[in-house]
Nucleic acid binder design. Structure first.
Lengths: 124, 124
DNA sequence: ATGTTATTTGCAATAAACTTGCAATAAGGA
DNA sequence: TCCTTATTGCAAGTTTATTGCAAATAACAT
C-alpha cells in the first residue's frame, strides 16, 4: 500500500457516488496529488482484486465506475438520465428469482447486475 | 429501408443470441454481403430509433449487443462467464420493486437492466 | 546505513469500440 | 430525366482502457 494507492482509496472512501477512472484522476490532480491515469487504472484493478472495490458498468455510460466494497452490503443503483446522478438502492429482490433461474436454465448463477434509470426529483 | 438495412435486420431476425456490431459485420461478409462496419453502427442506431432493435450493454463485455425487439416480450439475460453464451430469461420480477423504488427515491423510473452471470451446463 | 531485489510508477505507444466529416453513390419524387 | 434527399464507404478522430519498458520507489536482508 503506497501513498498513491492510499490516495485513491481515500478518495473512494470520501466519495458517495461511484466514480470513474478519469474522475479519480481529475479529482486527485485538483487536490495536488500527482498521479498518472494509467496508475489510476492499475490501482483500481489491484483494489478490485483485493476485494476492496467494486466495478460497475452502468448501462449506456460506456465507462467503468468504482465504489468501495469494504463494509458495505450488497446493493444496486438508480441513475438519472438527465443529470447522471447515481443513488444507491439498499435492496435486492433477486434471491428467490436466482433459484428459479438456476432450476430453469441449469446454469449455476454466480452474480447479477441490476440497475434502474429514470428521472431524479430535481430533473423531473 | 435499403437492402443493406434489410440485410442487417434479416440477420438479427435469424440470430438467436444478442449480436455485436463486429459480429454483424463479419457474419454478413461471410454471406458475401458487402457492408462497412460504420454502416453497421449507423444501421443499428437507426433500427434502435425505430424501436425495432434493443441495445444491450452486458456487464464487463465492453461492447454493445443488439437483438430484435419486434414482437418479443420484455425479458432479461444470463451469460456464461466461460463460453460467453447468452440465454434469454423470459421473466421479470421487478414490477413491484419499481413502485417501491419510486416511493423511496422520488425518482420516476423509466427503465431497468437486469443480467445474471454464471456457468452454463456445458461449462460447469 | 547500504546494497539487493521486487514492486510501483510515468510515459509513450497500442488496442478496441465507436463516432464524425465528407465525398461518392443510390433512392425517391416532380 | 433532373433534382433533392438519404445512405454508404473511406479515412480520420475520440474515448476508454491496456501494455511495454525504463526510471523511481519501496521492501528487506545484511
Amino acid at each position: 500500500m503506497t501513498r498513491t494507492r492510499q490516495a485513491v482509496l481515500a478518495l473512494l472512501q470520501r466519495t458517495r457516488q461511484p466514480i470513474s477512472a478519469t474522475e479519480i484522476f481529475e479529482q486527485l490532480h485538483q487536490e495536488k496529488v500527482a498521479i498518472d491515469l494509467v496508475t489510476v487504472y492499475r490501482t483500481v484493478h489491484v483494489l478490485k482484486e483485493l476485494g476492496l472495490v467494486l466495478q460497475l458498468d452502468l448501462h449506456q455510460e460506456g465507462l467503468a465506475r468504482y465504489e468501495l466494497k469494504e463494509g458495505r452490503e450488497h446493493h444496486h443503483h438508480i441513475r438519472c438520465q438527465i443529470c447522471g446522478q447515481i443513488e444507491d438502492l439498499l435492496l435486492c429482490p433477486l434471491k428467490k428469482v436466482t433459484k428459479l433461474i438456476e432450476q430453469r436454465t441449469q446454469f449455476i448463477v454466480d452474480d447479477h447486475t441490476l440497475e434502474f434509470t429514470g428521472l431524479c426529483p430535481q430533473c423531473q
